[in-house]
Design a protein around this nucleic acid. Sequence first.
DNA 1: ATAAGCACCGTACTATGGTACGGAGTCAAG
DNA 2: CTTGACTCCGTACCATAGTACGGTGCTTAT
Lengths: 133, 133
Amino acid sequence: MDRKRTISVAAAEAGVNIETIRYYQRIGLIEEPAKPLSGFRIYPQATVNRIRFIQRAQALGFSLAEIRILLELDDGNCKKTQQLAEQKLALIQQKINDLNTMAGVLKQQVKACKTNTDTACCPLISSLNSEDG
Amino acid sequence: MDRKRTISVAAAEAGVNIETIRYYQRIGLIEEPAKPLSGFRIYPQATVNRIRFIQRAQALGFSLAEIRILLELDDGNCKKTQQLAEQKLALIQQKINDLNTMAGVLKQQVKACKTNTDTACCPLISSLNSEDG
DNA sequence: ATAAGCACCGTACTATGGTACGGAGTCAAG
DNA sequence: CTTGACTCCGTACCATAGTACGGTGCTTAT
């Protein structure tokens, strides 16, 4: 007989803390399985999958609030889902653009550092300090 | 006579909330001017400059903890500053890559949605529910 | 000289994303 | 049938980056 997927088993399978599962349940990000009249809750594979999805989305810089919206794509309506996915895509694109801008500025500063011969005067620090513009 | 740079004037000049200045002082990110025996603290231009430095560094994705290190490097250590910036740059670029991957997946899903004829069964939903990564 | 309006200061609260704790209930093996 | 491991549940706590509040003290203008 397979070991029952109690909360600790589900947590181990998803690679998160037990308390994280409880937290996600509290904020309604994952469903809490019904509690048997007597005994412990048993978690379906779908919960483990969902937690893994959340972890992946987080790794990409999505907040739980954004992930909640992503998960709401699961509303059974393909057209609506598509629209939401496209909105999400636009958000991702915006994030990429913002990060590219940040990277561009930093790259320039590092380049200035590398061509700098005066070790006592850092162009990066100077640029952050320069206030008359 | 110029208006004395009290905390509210300094805050206005730096473009932050008064409480933000007090917060930065509490965590030791900026120095608190000595309090006159009688009267209010007067802030030097340097404090305003430093707050602007913090704001700009934050805009580049540095946390206050990182900015603290940056400020400690402001004794003119260009090499260390450069290293820190390069580390940060690598992190940003990793994030961009991750987001591009995510965008790619979402684009594919949206495309699948568009060629889907069954409105009740969405390929995107299906992939979210069965994906085990 | 008095009132309006800041400053000062500690403390509490916000949001986000969890983590830890303590007591009670339950399951499973010896 | 006891023991130990696990679950359940509420609540409190952590870090990060601030924001808000309330009482009191100080300054400045009228």
